[in-house]
Write a protein that binds this DNA or RNA. Structure first.
Length: 487
DNA sequence: TTTTGAGTTGTTCGA
DNA sequence: GTCGAACAACTCAAA
């Protein structure tokens, strides 16, 4: 008996549900396969991203190295899985195919087709829950419908987590030697996909993920999971785990991460209540992740339209010059510009900053949230359709959260509150390095003399605000009021 | 079926 | 500077 494990968003050997099942079923006679699907990687595709492909390539290289230590190797193929898998399965007498579930609309459609094609060849497919803690239909309302509000969803998410302790699986034992595996294509470069990036990207692979997790769970670190509840909103403090790309590609198991966090709370929570809160808050972010996965799976229209249909009636202004200024980090609002430049430099942005720039694009520039969603998907190394869409629809007020329409971020006060010393701004906007902290979030208010003193001319070295927040706030309120009348 | 309570992340204004 | 209230109305989930 020979099985095949199809790697997709689970690029690791430890605690990999489907891989372990494949190995158990065949006593380790497993073909480990990854397919470059041109539909997902073609540069012209809406959500394709050079940073993510680079992270993927790093992670695949490491996965191959780790497999070779088990006398196996990764089989790489390019093409349509629907054509490739049946061919491979027949050529190598594979008896069953294993994979971990992917809940995006494209993946669910693809997997259903693959399953049908293989069933015609009398080959069984086995899919497993792996990338989330709880999946639909594990969490449904009393009426059996899926949740659309986070809080009741989260209540049940936690209850179920408490009722069913998590377990992690060791890396499987593999017994199909490398030389007996199907032929493999060499690992491609980014350029071979017609992509390029100059970003200083986070390192891919499960080893890098382990290092990040260790750091985040190190009590000696000034910002770690124990301080997460208060530090997570501070882009200047690096108070988050930065594990998002690893959850995106499965180079870290969510179960292992939650277990490690719970263990930390047991070790260090007794003497310090804030630790307990930090751990709970951090694990709660993974509940949000599950929530949005579930929303996208059952309301796939959110990728095209507002979750709430009445918000499709908003007449966005979509001024191209304003979009360009936002996109390149030249709006004249330092916290917004610092965040957008962080995104362009690092392929990553702090979560608080994501909310600020999203609020600014939609409520201050009156630009369609989908334009921001798309840019994020192109530049973010952690870009995930479910979480990214959920975040943008939340910021635009079109999503699952029935948030008050008047909840509009003030980019100056957000900066003062969450980057109080201006350290985040100065890190990404060197032209403002010498601006006094009292002016760092509104440098245009400095006198000409003060500007000379701190060697920056606002309007020349750094832009004046491209819009007036108070004015735009009122216009946004009007814009959303139109939605109310249409109801 | 009806009722009730509640809803991630905020801002502004006036006392 | 600090604090509390106002900013609306609606939908969801559960009792």
């Amino acid at each position: 008996m020979i099985t095949l494990h199809w790697f997709r968003r689970d690029l690791r050997l430890e605690d990999n549900t489907a891989l372990t099942a494949a190995a158990l079923a065949s006593r380790g006679i497993v073909i480990p396969l990854f397919i470059f699907d041109p539909i997902l990687i073609a540069p012209e595709r809406r959500f394709t991203s050079a940073p993510r492909v680079q992270f993927l390539l790093d992670s695949l290289a490491e996965l191959d190295r780790n497999l070779r230590q088990l006398d196996s190797r990764l089989v790489l193929q390019h093409g349509d899985p629907l054509e490739l898998l049946p061919r491979l399965v027949q050529a190598h007498y594979v008896t069953a195919v294993y994979w971990n579930s992917d809940y995006s609309p494209y993946a669910m459609r693809r997997d259903a087709q693959v399953q049908q094609a293989l069933a015609e060849l009398r080959v069984q497919c086995h899919s497993f829950k792996d990338g989330v803690i709880h999946e639909y239909p594990e969490l449904v309302t009393k009426n059996g419908t899926h949740y659309t509000v986070y809080t009741p969803y989260a209540r049940q998410w936690w209850q179920r987590l408490a009722a069913q302790p998590l377990h992690v699986l060791p890396a499987p034992v593999l017994h199909l030697p490398a030389e007996q595996l199907p032929a493999s294509k060499p690992l491609p470069t980014l350029a071979e996909f017609g992509l390029a990036t100059e970003q200083q990207l986070p390192a891919g692979g499960s080893h890098a993920a382990q290092l990040l997790l260790q750091q985040f769970l190190d009590p000696q670190q000034p910002s770690n999971i124990g301080t997460y509840a208060s530090h997570r909103d501070r882009p200047d403090l690096m108070g988050t785990s930065r594990l998002s790309p690893h959850f995106r590609f499965g180079t870290l198991s969510v179960r292992a991460a939650v277990l490690a966090a719970q263990h930390y709370a047991e070790q260090h929570g007794r003497e310090d209540n804030t630790v307990e809160l930090g751990v709970r808050t951090w694990i709660g972010e993974l509940a949000w992740r599950d929530f949005y996965v579930q929303i996208l799976a059952h309301f796939p229209h959110v990728l095209q339209r507002a979750f709430r249909p009445q918000y499709d009636g908003i007449a966005w202004e979509n001024d191209p010059a304003r979009f360009a200024a936002w996109s390149s980090g030249h709006t004249g609002y330092p916290i917004v510009d610092a965040a957008m430049r962080q995104l362009r430099q690092e392929g990553w942005m702090h979560n608080r900053a994501r909310m600020i720039v999203a609020s600014f694009l939609t409520k201050d520039l009156l630009i369609d949230w989908r334009k921001g969603e798309r840019l994020f998907m192109q530049l973010l190394v952690d870009g995930d359709p479910a979480a990214n869409n959920g975040g943008w629809q939340w910021a635009a007020g079109t999503g699952t959260d029935a948030q008050p329409y008047f909840r509009i971020f003030n980019p100056v006060s957000q900066g003062q509150k969450f980057d109080p010393d201006g350290a985040y701004v100065r890190r990404y906007l060197p032209e403002l390095a010498d601006v006094p902290t009292s002016f760092i979030h509104e440098p245009h208010k400095m006198s000409a003399q003060l500007q000379r003193q701190c060697r920056v001319q606002i309007g020349h070295d750094y832009p004046l605000p491209i819009v007036d927040h108070a004015t735009q706030r009122k216009r946004a309120l009007d814009m959303y009021a139109v939605v109310k009348q249409q109801r």
